[in-house]
């Protein structure tokens, strides 16, 4: 059995005692090396889940473990945050220093890495996100996509096992979105970093290995993109988009054409349409 890097067992979380819980009895395990998308509209509990998975919040009920360490125990706090890095939505609000180099160093400084070891680690992290040439720039002179890549480099420098990205592309333009997604995809593929990709964009989710859909604090769907997106009716009832090609497949099947439910992107749909009689 594969190792579970992030695990939630019957987890509930409420921001205030009286308030309705943001998460209700969620159980899930994220396996090492997996790239999982989490979908759901605002208020579905996605962001709360992200903050529970790296110990920023401790669950109100249930148990969260990161690499086997219980997030409710104080002794593991810093190890957990190092092991499961978190990237946030707003690129402007997570960079601390006014020079890229110093920002990437921030986590290293906090975890007490010796000064002489830092430059090599910083360069390696920036190279991994393709931003090495910007090492001496000020963050406010960079594009949104570039800022997010710096934020990712800052996490990478701490050598995490898992990367949790909480709508990291929501505020970016298509180019920036593509940049950031490609970088994360490559980190997952080449360095084996486990990724939890929280998003509103179906086309991004379609490129992950596993898709989890949240609604009203619960995990309501969990499977491969194919399994999840083929349930168009259910997705619509959750007020989520259906990828355009999936929607077209439904229309064509309704007209009696024999189109496979696996066709979710343009290429495979073209193949299906050309093939069928």
């Amino acid at each position: 059995m594969e190792e579970l890097i992030l695990q939630a067992e019957n987890v509930s979380y409420a921001y205030e005692e009286e308030a309705a819980p943001a998460l209700r009895d969620v159980s899930l395990g994220i396996r090492a090396g997996e790239m999982t998308a989490v979908l759901g509209h605002n208020g579905s509990g996605k962001s709360t889940l992200a903050k529970l998975l790296n110990g920023l919040y401790a669950p109100t009920a249930g148990k969260v473990t990161v690499c086997g360490m219980d997030t409710a125990l104080d002794e593991y706090t810093w190890q957990i945050r190092q092991a499961a890095g978190l990237v946030f939505q707003n690129p402007d609000n997570q960079l601390v220093a006014s020079i890229v180099r110093d920002d990437v160093a921030f986590g290293l400084e906090n975890t007490g890495v010796p000064s002489e070891k830092m430059p090599a680690i910083i360069e390696k992290a920036l190279r991994a996100v393709g931003m090495l040439e910007f090492i001496d720039r000020a963050p406010h002179t960079l594009s949104g996509g570039q800022k997010q890549r710096i934020a990712i480099a800052g996490i990478l420098a701490m050598r995490p096992r898992a990367l949790i990205l909480d709508e990291a592309t929501a505020m970016l333009d298509p180019k920036g979105r593509q940049e950031v997604f490609s970088v994360v995809e490559r980190l997952n593929r080449e360095k084996g970093i486990t990724v939890v990709w929280i998003t509103h964009f179906m086309e991004e989710a379609a490129r992950c290995r596993r898709v989890i859909v949240m609604d009203q604090g619960k995990c309501v769907m969990d499977g491969t993109p194919r399994e999840v997106f083929s349930q168009a009716e259910k997705l619509r009832s959750l007020r989520l988009d259906v990828p355009p090609m999936v929607a077209l497949g439904d229309l064509l099947r309704a007209r009696g054409l024999n189109i496979s439910r696996d066709a979710m992107d343009v290429e495979s749909m073209a193949g299906e349409v050309l093939k069928c009689q």
């Binding site: 298509p174 180019k175 355009p244 090609m245 077209l248 343009v266 290429e267 749909m269 073209a270 349409v273 050309l274």
Partner: peptide, 20 residues
């Protein structure tokens, strides 16, 4: 120019390239 094209249009082009 680095801009996206709607997926429906992309599919139309792919279908024409395939002879439909």
């Amino acid at each position: 120019m680095g801009l996206d094209v709607p997926q429906t249009i992309q599919l139309c082009r792919a279908l024409r390239a395939g002879g439909l």
